[in-house]
Amino acid sequence: MTAPLTQCLLRLIDENYTLTDYQSDTPPRWCTGCGDNGILTAVQRLCRDEQLSPEKTVMVSGIGCSSRLPHYMNAYGFHGLHGRALPVAEGIKLRRPDLNVFVTTGDGDCCSIGAAHWIHAIRYNMDMTVLLHDNEVYGLTKMQASPTSPRGLKSNTTPRGALLDPLNPLTVTLGVPNVSFVAQAVDWIPEVLFDIITQAYRHKGFSFVRVLQRCPEFMDHRFDPWIHDPLKTRLLVHAEGIQLKTDISRIYRNQETHDPSDLHRAREVASETEEIPVGVLYRNSAVPCYEDLREGERPNTPGLIRTVLNEEFDKFTIWPEDDGAAPPAE
């Protein structure tokens, strides 16, 4: 009696993934103090808590500091082209619904060179978790203004200050039909970051999380006013969003009960400039996923392919003894 039970227990232990199971043999090469480190930790923790099989998990990225993340995960990774992480991830997911797909992208990667794909990815609403690491600057190419850089930012391409108002990734995302999940997190509240990423992962659809992220190299002190004054961060709480643990709740007393099904309020909250809203802004589980809409009714077996090909050939065939029954297509 005991032998099978022991085996069962052993198997359980064997199959129980720990944090180290998600760490690759390449140590992270981000700068000390870079917000990407915290995002990586949150993702690994999520994988552990949700017990995702590393072989069934694919981390897709583009180019930029944030896009190095797949190298540091023990999972399948795809570190592709600048701006093109989303279409790659869509191609992966389309015929492989069994895979857990994550996309890590940056403000340049997603909101500038890849902006067209971003807009359309929201429409497709494929089931994937998208983390926009937004540090409001180009880091890997050494300090150029990005679409989310604050006006006036002095950078190597804007030595007299950025001329334009920044693009707001939240309002843009919330403005696209078929949007199904939008949240915002900040890297300096890791507990809440983790909760938000968990909500995003559990949502079936295109789960878009903008993570405000510190860049100590090029944007040092950028978020200091918010870090130093917890009241400038507004936490959005709701049974359908995130709920705060007591210690967090004590520090971040600026809280709003926000129903994530309220798109109108979500857009208002997203437009805030003084305070940083943190939490789930919008969630709609009723939006269909593209991969489900496109799922074939029948698997493409050789037999089916043969049948369909022959049906099609029939439309174009001239038979040696043409009795006129099936003229070829015009």
């Binding site: 279409p87 991830a89 493409n300 392919i305 369909v308």
Partner: peptide
């Protein structure tokens, strides 16, 4: 009819990278 998909992508680059992903 054979359970497969023609995906009309948002642009040529997406068409290519989508195919690469698949």
């Amino acid at each position: 009819k054979v359970g497969c998909v023609v995906h009309q992508a948002e642009d040529e680059i997406a068409a290519c990278t989508f195919a690469i992903g698949a």
